[in-house]
Nucleic acid binder design. Structure first.
Lengths: 353, 353
DNA sequence: GGTCAGCACTCGGTAGTATGGAGTGCTGAC
DNA sequence: GTCAGCACTCCATACTACCGAGTGCTGACC
């Protein structure tokens, strides 16, 4: 029942918004509620750190906190539950990010010791790790390929008139596009087309491909090269719509007891576009946590999102997100996201892309 | 309430197991229950096709069906609910697979008219389509690459000592592996290594790669080639563990009202390995539907799976699966899976792999 | 003036009881 | 073999009572 050890033991200090005691009480209510999911009564707060007053005094303070919008009562004669604003205050006044607990740290270490494989696989598995650590749904968006340039290019004949353009980007990503080949496109023609196309697109970003190519003389070669260029073009869209790896969405079922809520949250999680722009939006607003209605996605009104960017090679950005109920364990989630983000970035950097 | 139109209007015929009337009653109960999710009483069955008897007679038949294990009563004085065996009979005696309804057919047609992109994207989107059509979670497993051979090979330098092996398989799949390069591995060395490696592995299946390579004379070239081969080797595992695209898992939340059930089903859906082997297992047993405990996966005891293979280029197999509650709409699910599978296979075949 | 013990009050949750209705199984007549 | 009629079962629903966790207020104390 008493989960005070879970709280950052930072004794609340006076702030512009709330005096020290109110802050301490609010903190206690939030931590308690995160642990128990039950409305918190004045009695349960009485021996929280920084609160050295009787339950009567706490009650009057709680009433004040309610007037100021930090707490609500589900009904008269029930304990208090934090509002979004209450959580916001709690999150904003955490003493530093805190660290992962011992078993969590160990889990992360082990994971990165034995992790291997290509970037997509790493990201996928990382989402699982994060879900395990935090009991939230985990979102991992890989580094953007937007600024990557074409590193190498190849056209492979697959069938009688079918070819595959394979392009390697400077950041190590590989893309492919199927194209139609004209008759008479033998290996030699393919090679010449590639050479012709390569001259024009290598070291170019996918989004700034040339519109046309210098004719190479041979009409068949030109046709192939044009087809391949068109193939590359069709890849531009993919880069904008980034892939997000979602792990542990089943945890959302444990977090809510209304099936309807679960359903609507899962529906959102299935829409990659929504998820990605949610994360990006939160980041753009300079937040690392968005609570309840702070992010605009209505079906997620009872959820909070923790977002952490991770940097690969200094600059390019990937994003880690954790989605849970508003009463999620913020200190834990923040610590996990940060720790994993840091190690993931490091790992991907040293893998050389 | 009356959903009899949903039922294949096939009037039950006598079988080895059940006489015509019992079969008709069982069919009516199943269809009604699929529609309403409420225990079905004798009154609700009275004007179902093939049942021209009074409710009293139906009651005695129902009692018999219960003794024989096709129905159960949640409690005395409640209607009847089909057992897994009841569903099994229903499914086994559907008159042909039936067809999709008009709007469904239109949805499928539209989808395949505007569908484009590479195979993975197609499969992903197809899972969404199937979920929309059936209100089930949809599973799509792409054609196996097991028997595909190496079609083309390339090593691209990415950083000072980092390279990427890119291999195109005969079925159009592209794989990559990061490798470490020795000092002095310039473009020319890479080209020679590729040539050396290509000679040994082109037209070979990934699972039957040679253990070693003929030395080419130059130690640097040999090192690169060996590293690249090791890279290829690391891909073997990926081929066995196939990727499955899961769409519409949120529908499972609508299907059950116990959050706990939802959670455990979702947990299974997150484990690709389990899902793939479930599908494969059902197929191997020659079934197209597995109901309740028929598949061995315990947390899915209240679920049924509809499985349809789809063939690309005659032989190679992909699989479509639909996961829903045991009271899912089997005729609809079977029709949708078949229709989509057929068109998907056709589409992937003509795309040339 | 802030703190707090004491107290009256509120109200959700649980348990117990009545009632209605959907559904059953059985019986006896056709 | 079929089925109208009937007694019976038992889930849902509604209502009531009651307990207890929790509140707000008051008045005394430092």
């Amino acid at each position: 029942m008493a989960r005070h050890d879970d709280a950052r033991t930072h004794v609340a200090t006076a702030t512009d918004e709330l005096d020290a005691r109110k802050a301490a009480i609010l903190n206690a209510v939030v931590t308690e509620y995160i642990g128990s999911a039950q409305p918190v009564g004045s009695q349960h707060v009485v021996d929280a750190p920084g609160v050295n007053v009787s339950s009567a005094t706490i009650r009057s303070e709680m009433a004040a906190l309610e007037r100021e919008g930090y707490l609500v009562q589900p009904h008269t004669s029930a304990g208090r539950v934090p509002t979004d604003r209450g959580y916001r205050f709690f999150v904003d006044h955490l003493g530093g990010t805190g660290t992962l607990d011992a078993t969590g740290r160990q889990q992360v270490r082990r994971f990165f010791e034995q992790a291997h494989g290509e970037i997509e696989q790493m990201l996928e598995r990382t989402s699982g790790l994060l879900a395990d650590l935090t009991d939230c749904a985990a979102l991992v968006v890989g580094p953007s390929h937007e600024s990557a340039t074409v590193r190498s290019l190849q056209v492979v004949g697959l069938g009688p008139r079918i070819g595959l353009v394979v392009v390697v980007l400077s950041d190590g990503a590989v893309r492919k596009a199927t194209i139609e080949l004209p008759d008479g496109a033998d290996d030699e023609v393919l090679a010449r087309s590639v050479a012709c196309l390569a001259a024009a697109v290598v070291d170019t970003a996918l989004r700034s491909l040339p519109a046309e190519l210098e004719p190479a003389g041979d009409p068949v070669v030109d046709t192939v090269a044009a087809a391949a260029l068109a193939g590359l073009r069709s890849l531009q869209g993919d880069e904008t719509a980034e892939h997000v790896f979602v792990g542990g969405s089943s945890r959302m079922a444990a977090a809510f007891d209304a099936v309807e809520t679960v359903r609507s949250v899962l529906t959102i999680l299935e829409q990659q576009l929504v998820v990605v722009s949610l994360l990006r939006d939160v980041l753009d607003r300079g937040l690392s946590v968005a609570i309840g209605t702070e992010h605009g996605v209505e079906p997620l009104a009872s959820c909070a999102v923790v977002v952490t960017p991770f940097s690969v090679d200094g600059e390019e950005l990937g994003t880690i997100g954790l989605l849970g109920p508003t009463r999620m364990n913020y200190p834990q989630a923040l610590a996990a996201a940060e720790a994993v983000g840091e190690r993931l970035g490091r790992r991907l950097s040293e893998a050389g892309r």
